Amino acid sequence: MSSSPADQCSILIVDDMEENLIAFEAVLGPLHEHLVRARSGEEALKAMLRQEFAVVLLDVRMPGMDGFETAANIKRLDQTKDVPVILVTGAEAGADYAYRGYAIGAADFITKPIDPWVLRTKVNVFLDLHRKTRQLAMRGTAGDTDRLAEITERLAQIELLLRNRPGAESAGLADRIAAVERSVDSLLPGPTG
């Protein structure tokens, strides 16, 4: 499945070994997404603070900050806590790896040697979820803006009708509606008319 540049997502690949990074890139290349490399947990955290990622592939065994500690730090930060993390482990990983990973918030596990089809399928699930979440957020914002603009327009019409009616009561009500109209109008993004 190929994505357009506007629809393209970023995937963070974290591994201290160059050959593993190359293998991930080869497997994920057909997805036509933006792949970002990190060679340590520290480098991964810096990358995540600089840009948005749809999913993180994180090697468990790395010198310094290992995958578990890196994942725990990712899940602690407000900016990155919702990014799904797939932990990548060696075949010798025990059941305690899964327990530790899920306990710190990992979304999934994949074992080396990696089955390319399984990895692409799992990553695609998170890419689709990320795109849908982004679409919903954009629709919600646009829908809210449209609705506020509609409310402002209706308030302006009501205010005009009241100002055209004789009587002090109508004028007072029109003034209150004008105040509400200004309040709603101030909620709209950008310059208002």
Rank of each mutant, 00 (worst) to 15 (best):
2 S>T: 14
3 S>E: 10
5 P>K: 06
6 A>K: 08
8 Q>N: 08
14 V>Q: 03
14 V>T: 09
18 E>Y: 10
23 A>I: 05
23 A>N: 07
27 V>R: 11
30 P>A: 12
33 E>Y: 05
35 L>F: 05
36 V>S: 11
48 M>N: 09
50 R>S: 14
54 A>F: 00
56 V>R: 03
58 L>C: 06
63 P>C: 11
65 M>P: 03
72 A>Y: 13
72 A>M: 12
73 N>P: 02
73 N>V: 08
78 D>R: 15
81 K>F: 03
83 V>Q: 01
91 A>M: 05
92 E>V: 13
97 Y>E: 09
99 Y>V: 15
102 Y>D: 00
105 G>D: 11
110 I>Y: 01
111 T>L: 01
112 K>D: 02
113 P>F: 01
116 P>R: 05
125 V>K: 08
126 F>N: 06
130 H>T: 12
130 H>E: 10
132 K>A: 09
132 K>E: 12
135 Q>G: 02
139 R>M: 02
140 G>W: 11
140 G>D: 12
147 R>I: 03
147 R>F: 13
150 E>D: 10
151 I>Q: 07
154 R>S: 06
156 A>Y: 14
159 E>Q: 14
161 L>D: 15
163 R>I: 07
163 R>G: 00
164 N>F: 06
165 R>K: 14
168 A>R: 06
170 S>G: 04
171 A>L: 10
176 R>L: 14
178 A>Y: 07
178 A>V: 06
179 A>R: 02
180 V>I: 12
182 R>I: 00
184 V>N: 00
190 G>V: 05
